[in-house]
Each structure stands twice: as C-alpha cells, then as structure tokens.
Design a protein around this nucleic acid. Structure first.
Lengths: 110, 110
DNA sequence: ATTTTCCATTGATATATTTCAATACATCAA
DNA sequence: TTGATGTATTGAAATATATCAATGGAAAAT
C-alpha cells in the first residue's frame, strides 16, 4: 500500500468528531441496526449535514460500510480495513530503515 | 485519553511526508545515529525547513523524540507512544457502542 | 396528491495546513 | 573574528478542511 493511501485513511481517522462517530458505530452490519444518520446527529449533538460529511470521508477511506434500509442509512465499521491500517502503520514504524532502503534500491534497479 | 488528543496524534501520522519520515527514523535512540535533519531532507528530496516543520508536528504529538548532538539533531520514533495510539484507536473501534453508552450514563450519574 | 421524514449535496465562511524562501540562531572550524 | 554548517523560526501563498444553513431528491405516511 502506498504511503499516500495509508495517509488518507489515517487522516480520515485523525479528527475528533470522526473518532466519536466510530465510537458509536457498530462493528458489524447488524439487523437491529444501531443509529441511523439522524439519530447519530442527535447523539453527537451536531447537525445532520455535518455528520453526513464525516461519514462520507470515512466511507471514501473504506473505513466504514453502508446500507440503505427503507428510508434510513445505516453505517458500520469496516473492521478488516481498520486492522490493516493499524498493521500497515506499525509496519512502517517497526521497519528497519537501513534494510528498507536496501529493498527500495533493489526494487528500483530491477 | 480524550478523543481530541488521540485525534491530534492520528492527524500527525496522517500525512504522506510524515509517514515517509517515520519510515526513515530509527526505532530507538542509536549511538551511530541515522540521519540528521539535513540528511533526512536530502533523502526525502524536500527542503530542510519543510522537514523541520514535519518533525515539529510529530514531536509535539509525542510520536518522536529528539536529541541534539554537537551541531546535529537526531530524531527517533517513540515506540511506546506509537503502540498506545494503535491500541487506543482499536479500543474505540472494538468497543461495544451500547455498552459504552451505558458506562457513560453510569459515570455521568455518579 | 400532499405532507412528512430522512439523507446527500451545494455553497459560503472561517480556520487549518502544507510548502518553502528568507532569515535568525547556535555551534564548530580556520 | 570570520566563515561555514546545521537547525529552527518566520512570513507568505496556495491549498485543504470543518462547519452548517439551505436545498434537492427519494421514500413513506396521511
């Protein structure tokens, strides 16, 4: 995964409102669905368009999934993607700089 | 940890240039230190003030540490902090919304 | 058909961020 | 002391982001 993609996902996560949203969303697509968007807005105490905006950013970063039921839209966390983000970030921090520099050199000289 | 603090750390991480920097920094304070700031700038192909700016953001987010040696400044990753960030984020995503809502209620009614 | 409900989008404003040249500051060398 | 080296800061410009009122559009209820 290129750093730019991972950065976009981390940036999507790096907002207090969006962290609050993630804390309210269910981890799985549940039948007795949790909050619809309006209820989410009520719970957060912020206007609905603002919530939709943040949901869009999280969705475009592939961090949440969505399903429309009747008139409502229900979102839930894309757990596998969350795991990948954490793993990818830790891989960068755990990677030996000298070794990866060597790898980059091997790749670019192919 | 409040969401705003975690968000600031995640936001600091969520930038492609800063991810590249983290990929180049050693994971520990090493004697045969890796790059000083100028060498880092050379390696990244961007001006030194830009690198200093990004290092400052990472430093203020407590994600890296710094030591001045002679004229040079050497930075390295604050690994424990990185682990805490990942754990905190995963805790938010893994938390059961209904349960935490109940906890919030118990706390606020104390 | 009309109204209500729910969500997404648009548009506008305020704020924040990224980038880098220029400069300041400190340390070392000659 | 003068010049060179390494880093941080300042200031300016371009871009990006967060926020929300107003609006559009779709689905359900009356």
């Amino acid at each position: 995964m290129p750093h730019s993609d991972l950065a976009r996902q981390l940036k999507a996560i790096g907002d207090p409102t969006r962290l609050r949203i993630l804390g309210l969303l269910p981890r799985v697509k549940t039948c007795q669905a949790g909050y619809n968007v309006s209820q989410l807005a009520g719970e957060l105490g912020i206007p609905q368009p603002t919530v939709s905006h943040h949901l869009k950013i999280l969705f475009q970063a592939d961090l949440i999934r969505c399903e429309k039921m009747c008139r409502d839209a229900y979102y839930w966390i894309n757990e596998p993607a969350v795991e990948v983000v954490c793993d990818s970030f830790q891989a960068i921090c755990r990677c030996d700089p000298a070794q990866s520099a060597a790898e980059d050199h091997r790749q670019s000289s192919k």
